[in-house]
Amino acid sequence: MVFARVIAIKIAWAAMTLLVMSIITFAATSSSPVDVARNALGREVTNEQLERFIADRGLNRPVVVRYAAWLGDFVRGDFGTSTVTGRNVRDDVMPRLGNTLVLAALTLAISLPVSLGLAVYMALHVGRWQDLMLLSSTTVLTALPEFVTGMALILVFGVALHWLPIDSTALNFQSGWSAWASYVLPVLSMLLVSAPYTIRIARSAIRESLSAPHTRTAVLAGLSRRRVVALYAVLPAAVPIINTLALNLVYLISGVVVIENVFSFPGIGRRLVEAITTSDIETVQAIAIVMGAMFIAITLIADMAAAIVNPRLRSK
């Protein structure tokens, strides 16, 4: 069956991409055995101590063997122990991954209805002032770096108005309202950064199907406005919208790194940058692989969703 083969090829391709990502990560970040040992043991060590450390950790094996062992540990869920913090990397990363996923889920849950609603509204008012105003705001918003958008929100809602906390550190030690308040500005930043792009694509896709002959026929046949918009304008625009949403999700994964750092949000993006600045290689590797896997998995799922929705893509 053609469809099954297409899916199989897509999965194999995704697996290969992840493999390449892991090779790049390992090749870039794993330093020479002596450097690893010196970093871990400090400057005042004897050669015997260095050699014992290298032998104990198996650092004297060939690079390919070390890579295979490293990858094998990952696949089994063993992320190793950080030489900088001395903690188990998995225990360190997982709670933060949870926070990041909550942030992403909240963003997506709000972004989807808001972007679609705005896109329909704009498509129904094409060329009028409401549409032009929203369109130029989306132009400006897509042009701004994430950290500028985040900082602007902090300046307005945190510094000038005092409505919301200026960072998300309350998540570390508080629960209830102040914990949830910590999510508001990060989610809002993610929305402002990612939604404009979806809105623009959805607007032009919906606009196209609104001016299509089948829509005109539906209007002339006397169908209600709501029915026409839902069935004849939004539904045919599903493929470009799903594709954009997927791009958006993928993009959110890099956006989240910057946004988390703007708000000191205790997620994996923040932890990744911390780990890079402290040369915590084990943690960098773990987060790079986890985020890379998420990125590639989302691309794969979106690819398949687009293939399922669009019958023309299935045969390709």
């Binding site: 990502m21 940058v273 990125f295």
Partner: peptide
């Protein structure tokens, strides 16, 4: 297919 920011950070 590789994630751009992640690649730069690595």
């Amino acid at each position: 297919a590789l994630p751009p920011l992640l690649l730069a950070l690595v």
